[in-house]
Amino acid sequence: MLRRSLRHTLRSPETMITTIALPIVILLMFVYVFGGAMNVDGAYIDYVVPGIILLCAGFGAGSTAVSVATDMSNGIIDRFRTLAISRASVLTGHVAGSVIRNLVMTGLVICVAVLLGFRPTTDPVRWLGAIAVLALFILAISWLSVALGLVAGTPEAANGFTFVIMFLPYVSSAFVPPESMPNALHWFAENQPVTPIIETVRGLLMGTAIGNSAVLAVAWCVGISVLGYLWARALFRKKTAR
């Protein structure tokens, strides 16, 4: 199922290109158009890249939800049920494919960021830590996306449902410090799941203090993964029980 998921990715390169191009366009826009006007400590590109990385993962999650919804609506699941395979492998294949695909895309976005002037000041151990946190985040939103794809039913609806995942990084510390936002938004930005993940990745890549962000980031990722997995499993059982 993983091989099938990756083959689908290779056979629709336009989805992959769009998913990579959008974060890069947003990166270029924020660095060159808004970067000079932003009041942040240090170079703005160093501040914004961790947020763009998470945004990239969000865009990738959207395509995962769409592919799950497509599978559910075109009858292929009935064919899989006649095969001697684990029922869980259908969803697990989508998730594993999503994690690999998103890690590759994230790597490409980081390469573009380095070309634009992003300079991480960190050691190999912290790099591994940042990659681990990113992988955990991608795993979490992949399971959540699979569940949303199952809820949606149609690919179009799935695209709409994942909009929330894509929008969360905007209302976080991804682009601007939450202190610069009005009170209600400031509170939301400080307490939503994406902010501690961004702060952890930023801290690990730039060698700055992380505080309790790492613990919160891991807790949120594990929580969302478990919730997404249980929700997806329940929905899949319900939709394939006949």
Partner: peptide, 8 residues
């Protein structure tokens, strides 16, 4: 509301 404070 999201970027105004940081921009201006």
């Amino acid at each position: 509301y999201l970027f105004g404070g940081a921009l201006a």
